[in-house]
Structures are given as structure tokens and as C-alpha cells.
Design a protein around this nucleic acid. Structure first.
Lengths: 205, 205
DNA sequence: GTCTATAAGCTGATAGAC
DNA sequence: GTCTATCAGCTTATAGAC
């Protein structure tokens, strides 16, 4: 049973997020969620009209907070290299902070019903566009070498998002170190030399 | 109902693979699979002891075929740059051919029970090691600049595997073109200049 | 806003006829 | 090796008491 001081609705959200991430949407029942919250299954329906509505709420809220945070963090007038490094750092940091929400947003797109999927997917595309724009500006300025900005943007986002599948608190590397590794690989992948020398960390396979 | 000339067991495997990929393991019932095959639910148990056994079989078989194919395709004595390009090309090509199996192997790891997970995960690590080894050799030879070979290997695999989440038959780009885009980004991400000029394709965001 | 009770239907899996 | 029939238990969601 979780702390209820934040309001039952929020506790349900958090319990569902944790359970969906660990066992997948299809494998989690309303009873599971209610059990984690410390209420009966039927009480959930005072806060959400359906199980699908919980998932949609988690994913829409997550995408909104991602887009809002990016609106704050983006550098509008900086040169492309700086903007790309800033994006990579932002994306990794956000994914550390919101690991389970990100995981769900990635893995449970299939579980969204049509309308919910359309809404979430539109927001995903908006985020992707931000990266495409940076890459395109860098190519136009002659500082990036990217064979295709659409594929390039997706490739970069996939690379950076992958961190959630293996990062665990208290591992060998600090968050900051991991972020800098990804920033460096991101910049190199568009053809930039980076200031960083070799071997920030381990070079053994 | 699928063609049964290949044997019912194989038809069940294929139906399950398609359904698991589209709707997720938890959301697919034995009746769904049987319906797609054109038999009754109970008949599946003549071929698999449980639903979990179908998933485990799909994932183990997929990883075995991936590792076998890589054993065939890998270049043992070539210089690191050539081996890395070869890996990227192999990985992308395999993922085009086995798109749904790859998708499941990535998304449904959570749905595997403990022993099955351990078996599949061991094979995943074996595959990852191949990439770590290439990166380490390249770093040692002084031709790659990779801040951390463990993170680097995971980042590259995530970037390349991401192709399955957006590629659709008959799209703007051919398989060969997409493969070359990813090869170029892979080589650049470890600090290499590639022969390819800029702009294989689109540079508009 | 949570509870108990219940609806109506689906779940994985088994038994036994053919 | 597929079928029908069945099991015991689970599913999402609703009705109505408090």
C-alpha cells in the first residue's frame, strides 16, 4: 500500500505505472492495481472510467511533461552542435528521472486503443520533429554529416532511449558520466569531432 | 486460417508470433491463436504444454537463429572498421527479415518466466559481447574513439534495433539504402570518417 | 468515495470420446 | 491429433448500501 497523502487518484497512477512497467499492461489486472494501493478494485472506478483510461492518462501525461520540459530546455538560437548536445543531455536526464514512464510510453503503444494511440503518437512525432530540425539546420550549416535527417533523428532517439533498458541505480557509472558518453556518441554520429579524449571509462569488452 | 502444409506446430508458432507482436503476449489468448490457425484451443496442447512455452520457443529459436547467422556472417580476421560495418549491415538485414520475431524478443522479455528469461538473456549477452569485442579491438588499434565499450555496444545495438519500430514495407527508402544510412551513422559514432558524401537522401526535417 | 455483491464473459488447462 | 465438454478461477465493469 502506497502513501495516500497525495490523493488516491495519484496513488493509483503511480501504482499502475510501476505494475505496467514490470508486468506489462495486459498482465496487470484492476485487482492488482487496487491491491497495491490498498483499496478494492471497484473503488478505482471513482477515479478512472476504465483500465484503458489509466494507461492513456499515464502516456498522455508523460508526453505532455516531456514536451513541456523540452520547451523549457531547448536552446533556440544556439548553433546546431550546441543544440544537439543539449538535446542529448536533456533526453538522457529526462529518461533517468522518468524511467518507468518512458519505458511504458515505449513498450505499451500497442496497448492503446485507436484514439488514444493517435493522440500519443501525434505528441511523439512533435518530439521527433525537434530533433529532425536540429539535424537539418546542422546539415544546412555544413557542420553535420547526416545521410538522412528522418532516419537520423529516429536512430538518435532510439540510441538515447535505449539507456532505460539497462540503467540501474547504483551501477558502475554515474548518471553524469553516462550522459556524457551518450552526448559524445551522438555528436560523433553526425560527423563531429568532440573535445573529449578517448576512454572516459572502460575499454575492455 | 493459415496454410497447414508445414505442420500444425509451425503454423501455431507463426500465428502466435504475429498475434504477440500485434497485441502483446498478455492480451492474446490460446483461443485467439487457435482461431488464427483454424483449430480448437485444446488442440494447441498437443504441440505446446502451455502458452508460456510458445513464447519461450519463439524467443529461444529466434536468438539461436540470430547467433547462428552471426557466426556465419562475422569476419574474424578483418580490421575493426570492416568488422563493425559488417555487423551493422548484418544486424539491420536480419532485423528486416525477422521483423516480428525481433519485435517480440525486444518487447516481451518481461513476459518470460524466470528460467526462460535467464536462457534468453544469456543469448542476448552473447550477442552483445560480439559488439563489445569489435569496439574494444578498434579502440586498442587506435582507430575507434569510444568513451566506454559497454555503453557503446548497447547504444549501437539500440540504435540499429530501432529500425523495426518504424520500417514498413514499400516506404520511401529501400532496405539497402536504410542499411547504408545506419552503417554510416554507426561508423561515425565511433569517430570514423566514412567515404559516403553527405545527403544520401532527404535533408529536410 | 469506499464498500460488498454480482453480472456476464473470458482465462489456461484437463479429461475422455473418436 | 483433434474434438466436445468442463473446471475453477480470473477478467472488467456496474449497482446499490453506507
Amino acid at each position: 500500500m502506497l502513501d495516500k497523502s497525495q490523493g488516491t487518484r495519484e496513488v493509483i497512477r503511480q501504482a499502475a505505472e510501476r505494475l505496467f512497467a514490470r508486468k506489462s499492461y495486459g498482465a496487470v489486472s484492476m485487482r492488482d492495481i487496487a491491491g497495491a494501493v490498498g483499496i478494492r478494485q471497484s473503488a478505482i472506478y471513482n477515479h478512472f472510467p476504465s483500465k484503458q483510461a489509466i494507461l492513456a492518462d499515464l502516456m498522455v501525461t508523460h508526453m505532455e511533461s516531456l514536451l513541456d520540459a523540452w520547451e523549457e530546455a531547448r536552446l533556440e538560437d544556439a548553433p546546431p552542435t550546441e543544440r544537439l548536445a543539449n538535446f542529448a543531455r536533456f533526453h538522457i536526464a529526462h529518461h533517468f528521472d522518468q524511467a518507468t514512464a518512458v519505458f511504458i510510453a515505449y513498450m505499451e503503444l500497442r496497448s492503446l486503443e485507436e484514439d488514444n494511440f493517435a493522440a500519443v503518437n501525434a505528441m511523439r512525432r512533435r518530439y521527433e520533429l525537434a530533433v529532425r530540425q536540429i539535424l537539418a539546420d546542422g546539415v544546412e550549416a555544413g557542420v553535420f554529416q547526416v545521410p538522412d535527417v528522418n532516419v537520423g533523428a529516429r536512430a538518435l532517439i532510439a540510441m538515447l532511449t535505449g539507456v532505460t533498458t539497462w540503467y540501474r541505480e547504483g551501477g558502475r557509472l554515474s548518471r553524469e558520466t553516462i550522459a556524457e558518453i551518450y552526448v559524445e556518441m551522438t555528436l560523433r554520429s553526425v560527423g563531429l569531432e568532440t573535445g573529449a579524449g578517448r576512454s572516459l571509462c572502460s575499454t575492455r569488452p
